[in-house]
Write a protein that binds this DNA or RNA. Structure first.
Length: 430
RNA sequence: GCCGCCGUAGCUCAGUAGGUAGAGCACUCGGCUGUUAACCGAGCGGUCGUCGGUUCAAAUCCGACCAGCGGCGCCA
């Protein structure tokens, strides 16, 4: 058995080959039948003629439908008339399943394609995205392994909220009300005291009723936490991580990016270091950029988009005022009280926030005061408080939305296409 | 949660003085020896989202409901 990729590489030219796959396109003209077959490595045109196979067989092959499964055997030759430049001349075949029809035809609406996502994932577009996604997941892990981090895991069924404003998915846990994790951050902080540098890739669940092309209710969250790291140390790892992931994708998935019509030059630009802007600096730029925000206003989605157009790389926005971050765990900058040692990373081309991170409060007194100010019960956070009670150290961390990263890298319209089975406010199937 | 949009064949859509619905694709049958999401001919295909109202008559006008999409807020 051979792969279609081998044929396209030219290594099978003039030889006998057997490929197995699915009908991608089929055209017949009575005594000739062209079947374009796909497998996970590509597509290739095969041709059957009445002359060599006889009446019955050409009829059977001509009657195949899109996505019918089969194997074919024959000699491979170069042929300019075939789309990929190669063609297999069928001398024998076996049909595994002939479909009556296939629901996907040339006109397709986004909604319909989501209903039949389980089939649409076979498309060349989705296949390309999923190959890139695979590279991104691997590259993220590789980067942090290479930097001396350990991979670890937190629970997905939890009894404490992480984020301030985020809504939780409630769950009945043998009579106790618990929820699905919104972040693994607090658990990474626990593991950080044991392993110093840790990362995880896990789903996070948000019950926010967001109806936008950049939100999922279940998304893949890549998070890291490092002991002894200040805010700036963390950002340095992050920018190199983003650069590494994009270089890996450019290296391994150029073909897929081109299939998605991605402008490669936009990605080739992405080299560390990334620009950093304090929130206060950003506000000073506002008039110049024609935006009406002033100090103390939160950055909306429109502003984020407007900011990223001034950069051809991702940009870090740091030192948000305490008042506009709903989270309690960020450490205040002792040098600029009222501002937090935190950062967001905004992806270019209007894609916006893909990372949120910062230095964590590590002083016990400070943490207790913050919990009080946010009306949180220290009892609920007893183990998080314990981390500051026993051998606390400065540390920082971040969370990256992997689906958002893939959305940007692939240049997609909606984040839903960055994940195989998107879960949105109104979609739980397939 | 707020604002906006949509629902007609399996899919994409058209359908105004309100008069019982149409095209392309898919599928079936036939034709074609070099096709590139081929082409030609024929066929199959509909509770016009649901319920109610106006009317002699509703896909069309009115109301409610249901489903979906986009944007904001919130975030990754």
């Amino acid at each position: 058995m051979n792969r279609i990729g081998e044929i396209l590489s030219g290594s099978l030219t003039g030889k006998q080959a057997e490929i197995r796959g699915w009908v991608y396109r089929i055209r017949s003209s009575g005594s000739l039948c062209f079947i374009v077959i796909r497998d996970s490595s590509g597509i290739v045109q095969t041709v059957a003629s009445k002359e060599s196979l006889g009446d019955m067989k050409i009829k059977e092959l001509s009657g195949l439908t899109i996505e019918s499964s089969l194997s074919v055997t024959g000699v491979v030759k170069e042929d300019k008339r075939s789309a990929g430049g190669y063609e297999l001349q069928i001398s024998d075949y076996r049909i595994f399943q002939r479909n009556d029809n296939y629901p996907i035809t040339k006109d397709k609406g986004e909604e319909f394609l989501l209903d039949i996502r389980h089939l649409w994932l076979r498309s060349r577009e989705m296949t390309s995205i999923m190959k890139i996604r695979s590279t991104v997941f691997r590259a993220f892990s590789d980067f942090f392994y290479n930097e001396g981090y350990y991979q670890t895991q937190g629970p997905m069924m939890v009894s404490t909220a992480t984020e301030g404003g985020s809504t939780l998915f409630k769950l009945d846990f043998f009579g106790e009300e618990i929820s699905l994790a919104q972040s693994s951050q607090f658990y990474l902080e626990v593991m950080m005291f044991a392993l110093e540098k840790v990362f995880t890739i896990a789903p996070s669940f948000r019950a926010e009723k967001s109806r936008t092309r950049r939100h999922l209710t279940e998304y893949w969250h890549a998070e890291a936490e490092a002991a002894w790291y200040a805010n700036e140390d963390m950002m340095r790892d992050e920018e190199r991580m983003i650069e590494y992931i994009i270089r890996e994708v450019l290296e391994r998935n150029k073909e897929e990016l081109l299939m998605l019509k991605r402008d490669l030059s936009k990605l080739e630009n992405i080299r560390a270091p990334f620009p950093r802007m304090r929130y206060s600096e950003l506000m000073q730029k506002m008039p110049e950029w024609g935006l009406g925000l002033k100090y103390g206003d939160d950055l909306g989605a429109d502003e984020e988009r407007a900011i990223t157009v001034h950069f051809d790389k991702p940009v870090f926005v740091t030192h948000y005022p305490v008042a506009i971050k709903p989270t309690f765990y960020h450490r205040e900058d002792p040098e600029t009280p009222g501002e937090l040692l935190c950062h967001d990373l905004l992806a270019p081309e209007g894609y916006g926030e893909i990372i949120g991170g910062g230095e964590r409060i590590w002083n016990l007194k400070e943490l207790k005061e913050k919990l009080k100010r946010y009306n949180l019960n220290p009892e609920d956070y007893y183990w998080y408080v314990d981390l500051r009670t026993y051998g606390s150290v400065p540390h920082s961390g971040f969370g990256l939305g992997l689906d958002r990263l893939i959305w940007w890298i692939c240049g997609l319209d909606t984040i839903r296409d960055a994940i195989p089975f998107p879960r949105t406010i109104r979609r739980t199937r397939p």
